[in-house]
Design a protein around this nucleic acid. Sequence first.
DNA 1: GCGGCGTAGATGCCC
DNA 2: TCTACGCCGC
Length: 826
Amino acid sequence: MTTGYDDIPFFDEEPAPRKPPAAAGAPPFVGGIAARAMAARDSGRRPDYLAGLNPEQTEAVETLEGPVLVLAGAGTGKTRVLTTRIAHILSTNRAFPSQILAVTFTNKAAREMKERIALLVGGAVEGMPWLGTFHSIGVKLLRRHGELVGLSSSFTILDTDDVVRLIKQIIQAEGLDDKRWPAKQFAGMIDTWKNKGLLPADIPEGDARAFANGRGRELYAAYQNRLKTLNACDFGDLLLHPIAMFRQNPDILKDYHQRFRYILVDEYQDTNTAQYMWLRLLAQRPKGEPQNVCCVGDDDQSIYGWRGAEVDNILRFEKDFPGAKVIKLERNYRSTEHILGAAAHLIAHNEGRLGKTLFTDRSDPDDTKVQVHASWDSEEEARAIGEEIEALQRGDSSGKKHNLNDMAILVRASFQMREFEDRFVTLGLNYRVIGGPRFYERLEIRDAMAYFRLVCQPADDLAFERIINTPKRGLGDTAVRSLHDYARARDIPMLAAAAEMVETDEMKPKPRKALFDVVMSFRRWQGLLENTPHTELAETILDESGYTDMWKNDKSAEAPGRLENLKELIRSMDSFESMRGFLEHVALVMDAETNENLDAVSIMTLHSAKGLEFDTVFLPGWEEGLFPHQRSLDESGRAGLEEERRLAYVGITRAKRRCHIWFVSNRRIHGLWQSTMPSRFLDELPINHVTVAETEQSYGGYGRGGGYGASRFDKADPFANNYSTPGWKRAQQNRSDATRDNWGTRSGHAVERIGYGESGPKGRTIDGELVAKSTSTEPSKFAVGDRVFHIKFGNGNISGIEGNKLTIEFDRAGEKRVLDGFVERV
DNA sequence: GCGGCGTAGATGCCC
DNA sequence: TCTACGCCGC
């Protein structure tokens, strides 16, 4: 039994776990859990949290010593194992929460794990300081030890947009043509190198030569230097700097070795080389000491090879960690036999697997086979899926009505979404789109953040350049260029240069005055940083800088929404302790809240569907070229095909009860109609778990065999229908044009765009929800002055009505514009 | 400082 | 075919 781990010396700022006044030699307590666990043990009962685990899961939870690889198939209770394992470590007093390193890939996963652990151990564990994404843990390490790699603790995290702008500057500064050598492309190259853990000195000759006439390495080095002077990091650095820091400072690494008694990694199949190196460093232990590393993953769900993930990491685990125990979780708790059978048969076509086969022992009387459907073109596909959804909504064969929330359309590529959006808007069917640009990528949010960044981090030149003339202050290109030159010549940040320059007469009086005002403002705000509440400061900054006024004076349609977003930004700062903490959050976390009260079909890519599950899943677009995607095949050959197949596997295994696969004969690609072949994956589905849906449409007869030969799902007989005539197509076109002007016919039809910032293809964003523009002229069922209730904002009074959009003064949340469908009269 | 026009590019989007 | 972006002209 361990004792005394609370006196590890090196984290002064972090309160050591409280040590209860226990008798000498007694184990430390973690809240009341230990007591409960011991009581359970002493009474001969297993602790509650172990109840209900199957034997493999139990083994994965209880094998705490030594390296463990848990191969957890889709729907086999992976998260449960991870969280229970942590709960088990905690409640048996093997470690304090702060001694467990648990890494996830997404903030969402981290959040969910925290919540579930809290549930398991009765909420008695205050947080888990080292549970987070690779990147957020990287930030934490760098805030502590950044000076060892040349970063002060206030460093900024740049997002891809900042990075591209910075690289562009460097390319230009090097006298290169930034059109011939696009910054975006080079940013991508740097990202690839960093994923592999390569610093400028390490990159392969060929790579170095490939860009800017052989100056790739030089530019990469210049970029890294520039980051250092900016006191900034890109995402890759959040992994690479800690690696360098650990390598150069073995004593610090050793401290962390002592600290982290247990290491857990989720989604191990998605780790890239840099993450692997990072993990190896932290997982090292002196000979004879157990490496308590537990990696959880599924090689069959590795779908991020294109962004540097190395499936090899998981395939090689037993070699990397000698003596590793491999536990397979194959008992599936999610899907029906037919769905699992279809998925298993498909994925069996991949080579180089560790080999798992999912099974379920729950038989389901109305287990339906996976259904394959054919449509003539993508428009008909959207229509057919829409009908299927509405049918389920009305009630299935047994009369059961289904919620839209239990259905999802999972596409291979985001352009496929549009067709569904168009269709659902005309149907008035609620949907939500998940993915795409994020809240923090909105223009106004980025501007505001630039102000905050510069206040917290005066060396942040990128932020400075972003806002120096926003709002317009008459500090245009000329002024910025001379500031830039001045700063470069003296090797000081631009804000500092500005402060100096206003003391000289290098500038004309007008810009000089403007610049002087800016400099003084920033001085003032910096002075307020320490002892003003940060939300108040944020508001002050946006008001005094004239930024709020800029949007207030803006007459464009987006302006009110942007002001609303700024308010939302400030509101969301409330839950953070400081402005710095908030900045970090926004840099790392980009989640948008979903409105769970809205019943809506989810539309998302297969990639973003990983980890989710739905009763009914629609998988459209199973055609050669789209799925598997041609580019994947071209770029990565067989490996690419296998990754595509894993993607198909992920798609099918998202379904709990019903899985509908669709393919079309004609799809518009880059604007051109092309006739398409059914995906080879269709032929890889087992006939005994799949049915070919009889076509409901007038379109007659795919699957008649013959013709093109190879596939069971052969192309439709082009003469069996009249949809291919130019006239028909024109009619279709007219129809969709007409609907485009009049979509949102059903008042209150709600569309939620999660993660989408700027207005989507249509409509506008009101309070984060993209709302179909309604041309409805029917009188509102509400009247000005009505007292209403909104699930998120509470009670309020209607102060204005415009179609189906209400302006409401909420008692607590202030003025909001919401759709009438979201409120009810009280 | 904007709007109009021409051009390139058009998987995936985590942190 | 659609779009996003950069450049140019006012």
